[in-house]
Design a protein around this nucleic acid. Structure first.
Lengths: 193, 193, 193, 193
DNA sequence: TATGAATGAGATTTCATTCAT
DNA sequence: AATGAATGAAATCTCATTCAT
């Protein structure tokens, strides 16, 4: 691992664990085991490093989501696989999902520029989900609902779920399973009849 | 309005708009039109002022939720009223819901000791919702699901919804209506059969 | 002397002696005997303190120049008094003229904003000199030359003189006297015939 | 142009335009289009590069001044040619005179050890001018004044003139012509009688 | 000769908090 | 209760210089 990569790795860990403001140049360089000045040398400034960390995680997420929905049977199955993979990703210790919680359009950071870059990348994720929903509406595995709005609704579920699991003490151990069933019930035409 | 109240009001506005770190004593006292020193005089320190602002909003929320579910017919209706009120509260400009997004168990500030106080207050909200679900399970208006887990699932929906609406540009105008229907479909025994 | 005044005093000394870049917050606050943070508290930033120091000296200069030319007989005498006072001011240890050498339109600093404020204040000095020249042209004590251009020419003499005296080792002890005679010869109609 | 020459050229431009402190190794190497490390490799350190740039300009100036006074008739004419060439040099875009304003005995950088080297080189210029004055006093084209002091006085004029022209907005378009006449009037025995 | 990653001391600036009035 | 001057630790970022390749 080059020193540049060490920095990105340390940044992912620290931004994820402690957030933007609590993560200082000193902590990052110490964790990475490199000199303080290397941070600006390679990444320009703290903001850009934060973005690099967030985008790196997001790209991993998109890749895994694409792979997961590959070869799905019905559209509903695609949505289910998408959600399951999203949730699994969020607790994969190697993926540093917490960074995305700090650095995403769903984060509470307003002052950050580069926000648009993140928003565009995230809308790719949403589009991916929307395609699954559209497929399901077409093949009848999902209720006849507007795909865009429905994808957004499912996405709200995922956003709330990962926050509850990762940031609060309320999370039942079955949370992720519960959510998958919850989503299925809301989409599936058969209901539970 | 006393000077102490002016400070709380200014704090709610600024913490909500700009977050914890970007909100300084100077900005708060200027917005409130009072002397800098009054802040520590009345609230002790920044942390405590932040908590005071968050708890104040949270108490308003709880009060409005209680009032909303009062006199519901079925348990399902209670859940629906609860969710509708929660979402309405989040976009009521007088309520400064954004403060709760900064200052909540979902907040990214880990160092805060008062975290537990917030968690307990938040769990009151969850318990309120759980009661509605229990009632619905009992009266048959809601599927036979475990109340606690189901309340958490609904809560995930709400958390994701308000973040999508308040923090991102992806929100369709119908988002909150969509979510209410989404939740209803997931809970209601009739399904859409 | 208040702490705010101590800071200005220390700033005048240090900016004058060592220039802008070599004068640090640390040095200023130590020389003034106050806390580091008081600098930004009272003056906003280094740039503004630098301006405050320069303008303070400039205002003293203008006041002394005005007083010096008061009650002159001829215009030539007014110009002579003006120049003599300007040069005397430049070596008055209590006036910190060196600050003006660092912080003036004649300084070599291009990046500094606020430059216009200084330029306007300095043009007051030039106008004052121009009035003396005009008077001399009118009363015949000065050759029939364009006042504005002539005032600028005299000003060039002064600018070069103070730099030579204060910044180089070439300065003969008679420099200032020499310059006054030089200027007189260039303006006076009688010449040395 | 070798890479070493590119560096000197870039240094002259940047030191002249932005001064010593605002000119960084990074900017110089980028402007020159060479690697950062070449700078220390060829010139040792920033200080030495600055000196090299200043001395290079100064040597050009001395050469042009020598050529200009060659073959003058009277001493007064020699002084006039000297001054005219000095002023013309100052606004020749290929000569980067501004570097001399940053890097000269008039510079505000006191810490620099190489200061003496510059002072000696500058005194060559003064000696050259003094020779012209001496000649003029001898041939009667200049008033009977002490040559050294008079050369210094003329030099003050030039120093003030180039600063007024290059650094301030007060310069009339005729400034350099005005100054030549001003100097002539101050030196010439005929006066304007 | 040429490259650019690496270093770390040092600068400016911010800001919660204290305290005399 | 009210004021705002005063403090100093800590943060981000800069940059000349070194050095392995």
């Amino acid at each position: 691992m080059t020193k540049k990569e060490s920095l990105l790795q340390a940044a992912k860990e620290l931004f994820g664990e402690h957030g933007y403001n609590e993560t200082t140049f000193k902590k990052i360089s110490e964790r990475a085991g490199v000199a303080l000045g290397l941070l600006t040398h390679h990444y320009g400034n703290k903001e850009k490093l934060f973005m690099a960390a967030g985008l790196d995680v997001l790209e991993h997420l998109v890749a895994r989501l694409r792979a997961a929905i590959e070869g799905s049977g019905t559209g509903l199955e695609a949505v289910q696989r998408f959600c399951a993979e999203y949730l699994a990703f969020s607790i994969d210790p190697g993926e540093h999902f917490l960074v995305l919680i700090r650095c995403s359009p769903y984060s509470d950071v307003k002052t950050r520029e580069d926000r648009k870059v993140m928003e565009e990348k995230f809308s790719d994720v949403l589009t991916l989900l929307q395609d699954c929903v559209s497929k399901g509406v077409a093949d009848g595995s999902i209720l006849n609902l507007p795909p865009k709005e429905t994808a957004t609704a499912v996405s709200c579920n995922l956003v709330g779920s990962v926050r509850t699991r990762l940031l609060t003490p309320y999370s039942p151990s079955s949370l992720y399973d519960d959510m998958l069933q919850f989503i299925t019930r809301a989409l599936s035409p058969g209901g539970v009849c």
